[in-house]
């Protein structure tokens, strides 16, 4: 939700290493990130900050998981071995064994980029035998057909 982005980000972890020269903090050992309705869990998290504030957070896990409630009140869930959260662009990039679930639709692939504001998603495979898979539930399909019939 839009309100999430103005909330403080709290991060719980077993350890945290502050690298002053690089303005970087690395959290490890059962990392839990919360910002409003957003909830990210990972084994390791790297947070980069610049003078303009928080720039990005990269979560690593087996898998790392992401959960957030959108403006429409629907939750979006995602998991991947690497989740990159760009605070300024408000995008989530899922990398390696990426899986994203929204309104019971499931998308899997090598890389999934999700634009939180626009609720838009781009999914890519690694090429070769790797494929992007999208599963629409019948109900969703019916809604889409109804919408087409009305247009």
């Amino acid at each position: 939700k839009d309100a999430d982005f103005n909330q403080p980000v709290t991060i719980d972890a077993g350890r945290q290493l502050v690298e002053l020269a690089d303005n970087k903090v690395t959290f490890s050992d059962r990392v839990v990130v919360k910002q409003g309705s957003m909830d990210v869990r990972a084994d390791k998290l790297v947070v980069i900050r610049s003078e303009q504030g928080l720039q990005s957070m990269t979560a690593h896990g087996a898998p790392a998981t992401y959960y957030q409630v959108l403006n429409n009140g629907q939750p979006v869930k995602a998991e991947a071995r690497e989740i990159h959260y760009d605070m300024k662009a408000r995008t989530i990039t899922l990398l390696k064994d990426a899986k994203l679930k929204q309104n019971d639709n499931i998308v899997t692939g090598y890389r999934i980029r999700y634009h939180i504001d626009r609720e838009q998603m781009e999914a890519e495979s690694q090429g070769g035998t790797d494929r992007v898979t999208t599963i629409f539930l019948p109900e969703q399909l019916q809604n889409m057909n109804d919408k087409k019939a009305q247009d």
Binding site: R15, L20, Q35
Partner: peptide, 18 residues
């Protein structure tokens, strides 16, 4: 020398105005 500071157990961080 490496300019690092590490908290070792049960840590919590808060970024106030992200």
């Amino acid at each position: 020398d490496q300019q690092t500071v590490e908290l070792l157990h049960d840590t919590r961080a808060t970024y106030i105005n992200p």
